[in-house]
Simulated assay, not measured.
Amino acid sequence: MSHIHQTVLAGTYPTAGRLARDIEVSERTILRDVAYMRDMLGAPLEYHRARRGYYYSRPGYAVPSVTVSEGELLSLMVACRALKQYEGTRYEADLRRAFAKIQALLPDPVSLHIGELAGTMSFAQTAPRPADAEQYRQLFRAVSEHRQIRVRYRSLGRSAAAERTLDPYHMACVDGAWYVIAYCHSRCAVRMFVPERMSQLRETGLSFAVPADFKYETYMAGAFQVLRGAGRQAVRLRFEGPLARYVAERRWHSTQVIRQTPDGSRCDVALTVGHLGEVAAWVQSFGGACRVLAPVALRRLVCDGHQAGWKANGGGGIRC
């Protein structure tokens, strides 16, 4: 909207098409922003039929200033620093443009000096996935504008890709990794897809409506991270030693209840999940510091995982 305002203010009578090309968005987005400026910001923004472009019918209009608190400004600066990990990638240009637009809306006395944060904080992501920026743009557009897509998709357990027609409902970032929740016409069900396993993405030319009863929070309810299950299982774990304090310091799941001894040497964690696979892998990462109290099925998964790892690394059999 800042670009629309500045361009119209310059008296060049820009069209929606020109504005869309300037900031690399769709004309539909420009028209939506124009409507917002008129209806919500009181902008005297009109279309001049003879000049075939937008103009202000009343001189002196200014976009309302944005009030930014100290805490909000610090949050924005931290976000900027976090995104520095994408320097040198295909995302860098888009991110710079996005933050330039945000900064243009801030009051004149406010500026962001990201370089000053370089020596005070840093962010790292474990094993990030290689990503295709253009494909992500297509996916975001398909989700936001309800465009049906067709892709070649390779499931994790299969070596060959299969053709899928998808209605993408939602995109979610979980622990730094993106996922697409979409209705799959091949499976006749809503499924979760990994963008990096997609290829040959193209739009079908058809649109779709997201069902009124679809909610991301409801769809993912019960997942420990991203794996879902049909039922709900109560999990109880016991952590002992120095790692007990580490576990008690963090929020691992929305349902967790943690009880810690006064000296911090032991903590019990209770949570409810729909799938035990991710919980088992998480428990295994703590080695002998974690004991599964319930359910028995989780204890068996953990024992099987430890035994497989022991054998793969030259050990003998173990008993659970």
Rank of each mutant, 00 (worst) to 15 (best):
L31K: 15
F239S: 03
Q6M: 06
G88S: 01
R51S: 04
P14A: 08
F224C: 12
G309F: 06
V143F: 07
G277H: 07
A79H: 11
Y169D: 05
R236H: 08
R81V: 01
P128I: 08
T204P: 04
T126Q: 08
M198K: 02
A93I: 02
A308S: 11
G309N: 09
L45V: 04
D304T: 09
M37P: 01
W178M: 13
A270R: 09
E70K: 05
Y13A: 08
Y56E: 01
R197T: 07
G287W: 08
V273M: 00
G315H: 06
S159E: 15
E249N: 09
L293I: 13
V66D: 00
R202C: 10
R236N: 05
S69Q: 01
K215A: 14
G157H: 14
A93Q: 01
I114T: 10
G119M: 05
G222L: 06
A221Q: 14
A162D: 13
G309L: 12
R291L: 09
T67G: 02
Y219N: 07
G115H: 08
A297S: 14
H170P: 05
M171P: 10
G176L: 13
A230T: 10
Q148I: 02
R129I: 03
Y183C: 06
L83V: 03
C267Y: 01
A131W: 00
L83D: 00
R202T: 11
V269T: 04
V279E: 01
P295A: 09
Q200M: 06
A212L: 11
G71E: 06
E72I: 02
A244H: 02
R300M: 10
C173G: 10
